[in-house]
Nucleic acid binder design. Structure first.
Lengths: 329, 329
DNA sequence: ACAGGTACGTGAAACATTTCATCCACACAA
DNA sequence: TTGTGTGGATGAAATGTTTCACGTACCTGT
């Protein structure tokens, strides 16, 4: 017994095992050590209940095996699942995640970055919106879904392609009066491309396409007004709607139901994200983001040793999946 | 300029400001320092882009302002929202969260605890199932929803009361043939109490009550068989179902729909959790858990300095909320 | 038997902080 | 003028690791 009440250190283990400090260190770093020594060290460590102190280790090595993930919240199923996949990808590589929530506040985003820097994380993955985040270039940063500049790697789904895909599908299903709906803040980023792809495709095929942006985060009140203005004699002006997210699609469907307009009977809807909830399949027909690969890619890039020749934008393919809000199944 | 390429340290700041090391330390710890000194230090720090190194600080002080949260995954909306609330409660107090996912594996739970210990977290909040987790008693541990022993504080909803509440409500709505459904692993914990409360109440009021436990995590196949056996001439043997979670309730509803049995027309369903998803309200009528207070309580307890006289079980009240799967609105 | 080489154990220095015993300078009282 | 007290700056020690230059012991070949 070393006697004092605090936790055992390497020094205690060394003393107890009758070896030098450096030898203990080597054992816990998988550096070759004579078998008898290794054994004695492990026994002593076990006896004392020794555990490596990562704070001392990190101080010395400047590697912490921690990565910060910055995300607005976990209410949106897509955010939650993305967080889960990134956390798992990190754990698989022996890293751990420091979770930082911003609630979409640019100031909070900045302070999360500061926190991460003070904590000497080995990298930061950010689902952030602040266009002029101040980053120390000594810490690798990967942006999810928002492209800031060529010096900041960005991992995203093929949003443009997804929009095209949605348009093609709706047209193929016979829709002729098309609408794109998106919701959210003014700082857009990649998400707008979903609408761009949709519009480009509609126009190319010669069908009219309206586009509406809803600014009210909750409640969808602006949509209600819009709906009221576009329903005549119980019939909607549109027969195909592409929503920028599944959540929006679900809200729209609920809203339309109040007018007696049924999905997919009267209008077909395609959402975006493709996260199953409640274990009962997709919430709607949708463009599915490859969450697992997105997460894996973010982690790969942020942990990459060689930071020269990093691609600045990585775009992963999406796919269409039927989920009950289109008439195709 | 200090010259070497690495990050500036307190020593650099001290030199640049022309003050002693200890003075710089005091400035960044809000310990009284002469105004002119303070100013000079802050300017120098700003000039050099200095940031406190939390690893050195943590090594010296043994406080890290980090708390580990151990949870199976973020797929279940309840887990995701709980994680969010705990993370926010921590951030409000100047702490950060290390997120550790277990996918329900007892071994992973244990290794998460080990990881947390090595990382010198100030506390651990665990939504774990392993009944014999090996914990260092030097780190405060709070268990969410599972009671292990009187020495480990447990924070939970009033599951028993919630079960009673569900029974009372269904009976009040005229249901007479009642069923309780739960899903999940054999290691149960507090969750079983939902069923207990339900059964006790049904029995007390003199109505029959069946109870079924589904072991298959995904797919709900066992429930399908059970359903088939209890539907005669398109009519279900039950007119009121209490599900141990909203996710299960949603799956049941979908299953019943395939048999032409509509909710709440033919049978009324009450779930458990009460997490809104897709921003469009509750998924079903449900017993709502007070997630925000649960999170707040966990954090309060795990960070409490005085660890004597801690309650071993804290039980927070739930409430019923109508969400479309009962005929009461 | 001895030189040279190899494998590996040793312990001090370094990492960036906090803390504490000292010390200084100034003010005020006698 | 001198002695005392005080607010506050100082810098060395300590925190638990890793790393590296060094030293020792053993082995091999001639």
């Amino acid at each position: 017994m070393t006697g004092n009440g605090s936790l055992p250190t390497m020094k205690d283990v060394a003393r107890s095992a009758g070896v030098a400090l450096g030898t203990v260190s080597k054992v816990f770093n998988n550096i070759p050590v004579g078998d008898s020594y290794r054994q004695r060290v492990l026994e002593a460590a076990d006896r004392l209940g020794y555990q490596v102190n990562n704070y001392a280790r990190g101080l010395k090595t400047n590697r912490t095996y921690a990565v910060a993930f910055i995300v607005p919240n976990l209410e949106l199923p897509f955010f939650a699942i993305l967080t889960q996949n990134i956390c798992q990808a990190l754990e698989r590589r022996g890293y751990r995640m420091i979770l930082a929530l911003t609630d979409f506040s640019p100031d909070t985003e900045q302070s999360c970055v500061r926190m991460a820097q003070q904590n000497k994380v080995d990298g930061i993955i950010g689902l952030t919106y602040n266009p002029n985040l101040h980053l120390k270039d000594s810490i690798p940063f990967v942006s999810f879904d928002r492209y800031f500049s060529s010096s900041i790697p960005c991992v995203a789904s093929d949003n443009f392609g997804g929009g095209q895909m949605a348009a093609e599908k709706l047209i193929e299903l016979g829709c002729r009066k098309l609408l794109f709906l998106r919701i959210g803040s003014s700082v857009s980023g990649e998400t707008d491309k979903r609408g761009d792809g949709f519009e480009v495709c509609c126009r190319a095929k010669g069908f009219p396409c309206d586009s509406l942006r809803l600014f009210n985060e909750d409640g969808y009140e602006p949509f209600k007004e819009f709906l009221a203005a576009h329903i005549h004699d119980g019939k909607l002006d549109y027969d195909g709607i592409f929503c920028a997210s599944d959540g929006l699609a679900m809200a729209i469907r609920a809203n339309l139901a109040e007018w007696g307009i049924l999905v997919p009977r009267d209008v077909q809807i395609i959402g975006f994200d493709g996260i199953p909830v409640w274990g009962s399949g997709l919430p709607c027909s949708t463009i599915v983001q490859p969450v697992a690969q997105l997460a894996e890619t973010c982690v790969d890039i942020v942990l990459k040793e060689d930071r020269t020749e990093q691609p600045s934008l990585i775009c992963l393919p999406v796919c269409y999946a039927s989920g009950g809000t289109t008439r195709d199944s």
